[in-house]
Structures are given as C-alpha cells and as structure tokens.
C-alpha cells in the first residue's frame, strides 16, 4: 500500500506537480496518464524518493520519512524507463543487484538471495539467458531482465516508468501481461506511467489523469477515457469504443476531400 497526499514539486523554479493525492491498495494497479509534460515521470520519481518536493508519503503504513533507504528499497522497487546498463554485466549479476537492500553492507549474497534471483529468472523465462551479457539483449528481453531485478528486490510496491515505450505491440502486451500475472500471484501494488491510453485502460484497475501537474480525473478506465476528457486535456480528436469490456481509444482524422485518380 502506498499513499501520497498534497504532493508539490518544483523543478528549476517551475511548478511541475501541485497538490497531487494518490493511493494504491495492495494488489492494485494504478496507471498515471496524461499529456506530455503533465508531470507523470516526476510523480513516479517523487514516489521513488528521487525527486525532492513537498507532500506526505506513507509506504506500507509507515511515513516515508522514517524509512531508512535500505528499508525503503525493500518496500518500493523502480523499473526506470531508460535504465543504465553497465557494460559486460551478465543477466544473473544484474538481477542480483536487486538483492542489494537485503545484503548486509559488508556481506555477500546468501543462499536466499541466490534463490530469489533464481525465482525471478525462472518466472520471467530468463534462466537460459542467465549467463548472457545484458547489453547484448533485445529491447523486450532487457525489459524482462529489468522486471526480474525489481522482482528479486522483493518489494511489495513496484513503480514502472513507461514500461512499454521502446517495445513493439506484441512485446508491449507480453510485458504488461507478465506484470499483471506477477501482481496477481504476489499481491504486488503496481504504479505505472503509461503513454498508450488503451493499454493503460486494459491493464490498470484505475487511472489517474494528470494535466499541468494536477490530478484532473481519478477513477476506473471507463470514467477517465472518454472522448470529452481526452479532447479537453490532450487536445486530441479521438473516438472511444468498447472492446472486451475495456475502452479503446482510436485517433480520428477528419474526412478530407480525396482527389479522384
């Protein structure tokens, strides 16, 4: 469970977030959506403790200010949008980095750490790739390795920053399906920022729409993804239809005169 109240963040003297409230229950998937520059990533970074700002944050019933960094890392894992992938590091070693908050500062990884790494690799079908170098993997494989690292971290709250941006539609579905299965099987709370509104609506339980640093709508996909709201906040001309119980956002183009051949 993670709950934020009154989040306000300024970057370079400019207000980026204003009075944002947000709560995610255990096992819930919340997706933060909004137009470019709305403050989605900043909000996620604030939740991860990477951006200073005003506001109250409660993580697993404890005020975030009381948590030591290692404790916090055991509760909240972040999957960054553009991870720094060090040269020459194998998948197994990279996923093992997720165990950092569990390993004593001067200690070495124990059997339970290796077991956690192995579980994460197995869950994401990465065992055959354990010895490969991360920087040599494809985008989809890399994203799975990243999620495996977050999983090995053993945190009940997972923050995903644009988890599908660099992927084709098939891999987008695979990754999101995976996250969904993991949150169901492990009761994870998931907070993601999402560009693709249709995917956000299909996978998240609830959407929060940010515009100019404020929450403008917070609710299930049906209430957030309406033609009127998307026109107002995205300046987008879309049609929203329903498919399989989920809203689908279709970009529209006004009919133009088509020249006769």
């Amino acid at each position: 469970m993670i709950r934020a109240r009154g989040v306000s963040v300024d970057l370079g003297g400019k207000p980026v977030l204003r009075d944002v409230d947000l709560a995610v229950a255990d096992g819930e998937w919340l997706s933060i959506v909004g137009p470019n520059g709305a403050g989605k990533t900043t909000l996620l970074r604030w939740l991860a403790g990477l951006t200073p700002g005003a506001g109250e944050l409660v993580i697993a019933d404890r005020p975030a200010g009381e948590l030591r960094r290692r404790e916090r890392a055991r509760l909240v894992a972040l999957v960054p949008q553009t991870p720094v992938v060090p040269e020459g590091v194998t998948v197994a070693d990279y996923v093992l980095l997720g165990r950092t908050p569990h390993i004593r500062p001067l200690g070495a990884e124990g059997p339970q750490d290796l077991a956690a790494v192995h579980d994460a690799l197995a869950l994401l079908d990465l065992v055959p790739m354990a010895g490969r170098v991360v920087s040599s993997l494809s985008g989809g494989e890399r994203q799975r390795v990243l999620i495996a690292r977050a999983l090995a971290q053993g945190a009940p709250i997972v923050l995903l920053d644009e988890p599908t941006t660099a992927l084709d539609v098939g891999h987008q579905q695979q990754v999101l399906e995976l996250v969904d299965e993991l949150r169901r099987s492990r009761g994870l709370s998931v907070v993601s920022t999402m560009h693709d509104l249709t995917l956000a609506g299909q996978y998240a339980d609830r959407l929060v729409l940010l515009d100019a640093g404020r929450v403008v709508v917070d609710g299930p996909a049906d209430e957030v993804l309406t033609e009127e709201i998307l026109a107002r906040h995205y300046g987008a001309n879309v049609r929203v239809i329903h498919d399989g119980g989920h809203p689908v956002v279709l970009p529209r183009r006004e009919n133009r005169e088509v020249a006769e051949p």
């Binding site: 970074r45 991860a48 403790g49 990477l50 960094r69 290692r70 404790e71 916090r72 890392a73 055991r74 909240v76 894992a77 972040l78 960054p80 991870p83 720094v84 992938v85 060090p86 590091v89 070693d93 980095l97 997720g98 950092t100 908050p101 390993i103 500062p105 001067l106 070495a108 971290q153």
Partner: peptide
C-alpha cells in the same frame, strides 16, 4: 575490497543505486 559490491551497484547510475538502497 569492502566496497567492491557497492561499485557494482554504482555502475547502474545514481538514481537506480538510490532505489536499490544505496547512498
């Protein structure tokens, strides 16, 4: 020698190292 594991974590950059529990 005591910081060799820390050096591996630092390799993923400051932001990610922070979210992994490091200063």
């Amino acid at each position: 020698l005591s910081q060799r594991r820390t050096l591996d974590v630092l390799a993923v950059g400051d932001d990610e190292a922070s979210t992994l529990g490091l200063h």
